[in-house]
Structures are given as C-alpha cells and as structure tokens.
Simulated assay, not measured.
Amino acid sequence: MSGSVAEPLLRARELRKSYGSVQALRGASFDIAAGEVVALIGDNGAGKSTLVKCLSGVERPDSGEILIDGRPVVLDSPTAARQLGIETAYQDLAVAPDLDPAANLFLGRELRRPGLLGALGMLDKATMRTQAAEHFARLGVTLQSLDVPIGSLSGGQRQSVAVARSVVWASRVVFLDEPTAALGVVQRERVLDVIRAVRDDGVAVVLISHNMPEVLAVADRIEVLRMGARVARFAAAEVTLEQLVGAMTGALTQEDDR
C-alpha cells in the first residue's frame, strides 16, 4: 500500500544525474513533509547517495526540479542548502579529528568573543563549550571527555557528534546517512530517540539505512529507489520486511503516483 503524503516541505521531481555514461538518477522523485521521518532505502547503486547529494547541494542534477514549500529552489552548494535549513550527516562523518567535540559541533559556525577581541578573530571557546555540553545532554550524547581531540574518541562517539551537529543546526530538513552504522546497541537506541524528538519538533528527517528493522521502528514512511528512480512508497505501519525487499529487488512492483 502506498504511504499517504502530507503537503511536502521538500519535493524532488524527476531528477536526472549522469556521470559520463553512468546514469545515477533516472527521473527520481522524493517527498517529505515537516515533522515526518522518511526512510530512503534501496540496494547498492540504487541512487540513494546521488539523490541525497542533489538535495543537500553537493551535486547539481542534470534536469528535474527541487521545491521547498512548493517553490522551486536551486541548491548549488551545501551552503545554499544550509541557508534553507537543510543539514546532512554523511556516513564518512566529516569531522575534524584534531578538534575537540565542541569545536566540531560549531565547525563553520564558530562564536567570536564580544567586542574588540571578537573583531580580531578570537573565538569564544567557553560559550561554545557550554552550549555544546547542553546540546549533547539534550540529545543524550555521552562522551568520555569534551577536552580531547575527537579523533581519540571511539567510532561510535565520533558518529554521535556528527549526528548531533546536523540535528542541532537543522531547522527544516536533516539527512542522516546510516547514522547508527558505527554504534553499539545503547547508542543506537539513543540516536533513534533523537530522530523521534527532532521529528516531534517539526523538522523533516530523511533516514538512509540498510537496517530494515531500524527503518520500520522509526520511520513514518518509506520510499524505495531502484536503478535511479523511485519505485515504491509505503506507510511504515502497513508494510512488511518482505514487501520492502521485494520492492528493492524488483520482485514487487508498485505504481509510483507522482
């Protein structure tokens, strides 16, 4: 059964993207409403990463349309996407290993000290540290220390900081690419709780994951990509694991009502 879609906050229509002779997207569409968790799933090579890059400003589609609140937008850089309230946590983390967790949280958004010192480029490290500790506590992110380079923390803790950075700054849409891949059981559940809390705040959450039980546990809807196009949409409460696998492999077909 197709999942019903509320009025979309973010909509992609018929996106196409090629790299030389390789067609990564073949008319891919995608929709997500405010306060909704949508899982984007598909086998390797289905086009998930390319679609996310187009919707987060990393890549420009060759054709198609991206709309925010029903208005066409051009996402020609990650900065342009961030200005529209779109944040992304990539699977490769993109953290600065030599900086501490607070500095990573404020990376690119550093606070300067008031007055002349700020004008001279001095950072307000104390305020950033205090605010970072508050954000981490609110999100349930437990770190062994806030005083050490993030590169010395465990993979799970680094992942938690990367996810927290995207969640803290996203005002409209956050893309989470395999956010629990490096986490233990307890940290994984905390990330899922964070996703639910962000959704309840009205932010749209796009979850890219190969973990089907996790997808079914946290998503409101599931959109399936195969061979560069959306082939199915499901309400998470009404779909089975077998149906998801069937849609991903092509064994189950569903009309895509764009």
Rank of each mutant, 00 (worst) to 15 (best):
V203W: 02
S29H: 10
G156W: 02
V141T: 12
R11Q: 13
L105N: 07
N211C: 09
Q23P: 04
D62Y: 09
T249P: 07
E238H: 09
L25W: 03
V141A: 11
V231G: 06
D147K: 11
A236I: 12
R11C: 07
P97A: 03
T240F: 08
I32C: 10
A89N: 03
S29A: 12
V245G: 13
A81G: 11
T130N: 14
F30E: 04
Q157T: 03
A236K: 08
L176W: 00
I41F: 02
D257T: 15
A237S: 15
R196Y: 09
I195L: 09
H210N: 07
R138W: 11
A164E: 02
F175G: 00
T79Y: 13
V191L: 05
D69R: 12
T180D: 08
I41T: 01
F234R: 00
E238M: 04
A237Y: 10
W169I: 00
V95M: 05
A232K: 05
L252Y: 13
E238I: 01
V203N: 00
S152P: 06
L117E: 12
H210T: 02
A46S: 11
F136H: 06
D257M: 12
E134P: 04
E214M: 09
V22K: 11
L176R: 03
A137I: 05
A12C: 11
S29R: 05
M122R: 14
Q83E: 15
V215E: 03
E238R: 10
P101V: 04
R233W: 09
T249L: 13
V52D: 03
V206R: 00
R13T: 13
A96C: 15
A126D: 15
V245D: 11
L216T: 13
M248R: 08
G70H: 12
V5D: 08
V52F: 04
F175I: 00
T142S: 14
D200Y: 05
T130S: 15
G155F: 08
P61D: 11
G140Q: 03
Q23G: 09
D100M: 10
T50A: 01
Q187C: 07
E14W: 10
A137W: 10
E7L: 12
K53D: 08
I66N: 01
R109L: 01
Q83C: 13
S56Q: 04
Q23N: 13
I41W: 02
L111Y: 08
D177Y: 03
E110R: 02
M128F: 07
D200C: 10
A89G: 02
V191S: 09
P179D: 00
L216V: 12
D257V: 15
P78V: 03
A103Q: 15
G202M: 09
Q144D: 15
T50H: 02
V206Y: 02
D43E: 14
F106D: 04
L216Q: 12
G108Q: 03
P101M: 05
V74F: 05
K125D: 12
G140R: 06
Q91M: 10
G3I: 10
V73K: 04
A96L: 14
R188D: 09
S2F: 11
L25N: 11
T253E: 15
A247N: 06
S154Y: 04
L216D: 12
P213R: 06
Q187W: 08
A126I: 13
R165G: 00
G228L: 01
I222H: 00
A94E: 14
D147T: 13
L55W: 02
E59I: 12
E223T: 12
L84V: 01
A46H: 05
A81T: 10
A96V: 15
G250M: 07
